[in-house]
């Protein structure tokens, strides 16, 4: 009965959304802000990857908010798990097999490298701080799976996290103090398509990469190390 009702309700809602979607033209460049970004993005921000220029520059404030959400979630998780830690006695974790162990050890540095590559080149190629950070975090996930007993240093991860976020905010405030707006791109934009271009965008993306990486790794750490 309950399922049926839910189904009916969802059908109605979906119908409504479809009706609304009908009005939206797909594939036609009617999206006016999007058009502007594509046309003027590189010129205004210096980032070749338009997505990055939108994420970090045009809508950089959203990105600041998003890393805050992530931060909030991580802190909240650790706050809840930190107080709600029930120890199950005698729970044994099976040691990983040799293949897993070797594979993980082999992949760990490579993943770190890939992650770093992605966020450093965020303004040039697809990807950026979030993706790079996630890849780094998955490297740590592998480390937890493959290497028994190893874990990240909590203090280090927190310092990295905080510094990453602070870099973002400080860069924003510098923009403010030099008389322009918050998050103003005050560094020289440089030549597009080179690593040292797009002003503060790569700096922010690197900071985000570190922050996201350490944060997600911290979350994994909290989940796995519940029985400490």
């Amino acid at each position: 009965m309950r399922k049926l009702i839910s189904l009916i309700l969802l059908v109605i809602i979906a119908g409504g959304i479809v009706l609304s979607l009908k009005e939206i033209p797909f594939g036609i460049s009617k999206i006016k802000i999007g058009d502007y970004y594509i046309k003027k993005g590189i010129e205004e921000t210096g980032a070749t990857n338009i997505v990055t220029s939108v994420v970090v520059s045009y809508r950089g404030f959203d990105t600041l908010g998003e890393i805050t959400i992530l931060f909030t979630a991580a802190i909240g998780l650790s706050a809840v798990l930190g107080t709600y830690r029930k120890r199950k006695a005698g729970e044994k974790v099976e040691p990983p097999s040799f293949i897993v162990k070797t594979g993980c050890r082999f992949l760990f540095p490579i993943l770190l490298l890939v992650g770093a590559y992605i966020f450093i080149h965020g303004h040039l190629t697809p990807g950026g701080g979030f993706q790079g950070g996630a890849i780094i975090a998955s490297a740590f996930l592998l480390m937890y799976l493959g290497c028994e007993g190893k874990r990240i240093n909590e203090n280090t991860s927190i310092v990295v996290e905080v510094l990453g976020a602070l870099t973002f905010i400080v860069l924003g405030i510098i923009g403010l103090t030099i008389g322009k707006d918050f998050l103003f791109n005050f560094l020289p934009k440089g030549e597009p398509n080179t690593l040292l271009s797009a002003g503060i965008i790569p700096v922010i993306y690197i900071a985000i990469g570190f922050k996201v990486g350490s944060e997600l790794a911290g979350i994994i750490d909290h989940l796995i190390e519940k029985n400490q």
Binding site: N49, P126, G128, F130, A134, A137, S138, L141, I220
Partner: peptide
């Protein structure tokens, strides 16, 4: 949308799955 693809692969496929696996095991 390569950016989104990358995020989806890294987060949706890798991290979330990993976290779910941990959760299910526990």
């Amino acid at each position: 949308a390569p950016d989104v693809a990358m995020a989806e692969a890294a987060i949706g496929a890798a991290l979330v799955t990993g976290i779910f696996v941990i959760a299910v095991k526990r």
